[in-house]
Amino acid sequence: HAATELTPEQAAALKPYDRIVITGRFNAIGDAVSAVSRRADEEGAASFYVVDTSEFGNSGNWRVVADVYKA
C-alpha cells in the first residue's frame, strides 16, 4: 500500500519520525508527490507531508522535502 499524503492540519497533529529529500525532474507537482509517496513507502512510512518544493536553477530539476510519519 502506498503512503498517503496528509493535509496541513493532519501533519500538524502528528510528529514526523524522519524527513526525506528527493531531487529529480518532475513535469508537475503531482509527479513529485508520487515520487515522495514511493520513497516514503519504501521507508515503511504510513503517510507523508510535503514541507517544501524548490526548483534548482532553470534546469527543470526539483528538490522536494517531506516529513514522513509511521501511523
Rank of each mutant, 00 (worst) to 15 (best):
Gly24Ala: 06
Asn27Pro: 10
Ala45Ile: 05
Pro8Gly: 11
Val64Glu: 02
Thr4Ala: 09
Ile20Phe: 05
Thr53Trp: 15
Ala40Phe: 02
Phe26Cys: 05
Arg63Glu: 08
Tyr17Ser: 05
Phe48Lys: 00
Thr7Lys: 07
Tyr17Pro: 05
Thr53Asp: 02
Ala28Asn: 15
Pro8Leu: 12
Tyr69Thr: 01
Thr7Pro: 04
Val21Asn: 01
Asn61Lys: 10
Phe48Met: 01
Gln10Glu: 11
Lys15Thr: 13
Ala66Phe: 15
Pro16Ala: 07
Phe26Lys: 02
His1Met: 08
Phe56Glu: 13
Phe26Met: 03
Ala12Ile: 09
Val64Gly: 00
Phe56Ser: 09
Ala46Thr: 14
Arg38Gly: 04
Asp31Gly: 05
Tyr49Lys: 03
Ser47Ile: 04
Tyr17Ala: 02
Ser59Ile: 09
Ser47Tyr: 15
Ala13Pro: 07
Gly30Gln: 14
Glu9Asp: 10
Val21Lys: 02
Ala13Tyr: 11
Asn27His: 12
Ala3His: 03
Glu42Arg: 10
Lys15Asn: 08
Glu42Lys: 10
Ile20Asp: 00
Phe26Ile: 02
Asp67Ser: 03
Glu43Ala: 14
Glu55Cys: 12
Ser37Ala: 15
Glu55Pro: 11
Asn58Phe: 10
Ser59Met: 10
Val64Tyr: 02
Gly44Cys: 09
Ala66Lys: 00
Val50Asp: 01
Glu42Ser: 09
Asn58Val: 11
Ala28Thr: 15
Tyr49Pro: 02
Ala13Gln: 13
Val51Thr: 05
His1Arg: 11
Arg63Gln: 09
Asp31Asn: 05
Asp18Ser: 11
Ala3Gly: 03
Val68Asp: 02
Thr4Lys: 14
Asn61Val: 14
Ala46Glu: 13
Lys70Trp: 09
Ser37Ile: 10
Glu55Arg: 09
Arg39Ile: 11
Glu42Phe: 10
Phe56Ala: 08
Arg63Cys: 13
Arg38Ile: 11
Val68Glu: 00
Ile29Gly: 05
Val50Pro: 02
Val68His: 00
Val21Arg: 01
Ser54Phe: 14
Asn58Cys: 11
Ala11Gln: 03
Gln10Phe: 04
Thr23Phe: 13
Ala3Cys: 06
Val33His: 08
Ala66His: 00
Phe56Asn: 08
Lys70Val: 08
Ala71Gly: 11
Ile20Gln: 00
Glu43Gln: 12
Ser54Cys: 15
Glu5Ser: 08
Gln10Met: 10
Arg25Lys: 13
Ala46Asn: 11
Tyr69Gln: 00
Ile22Met: 05
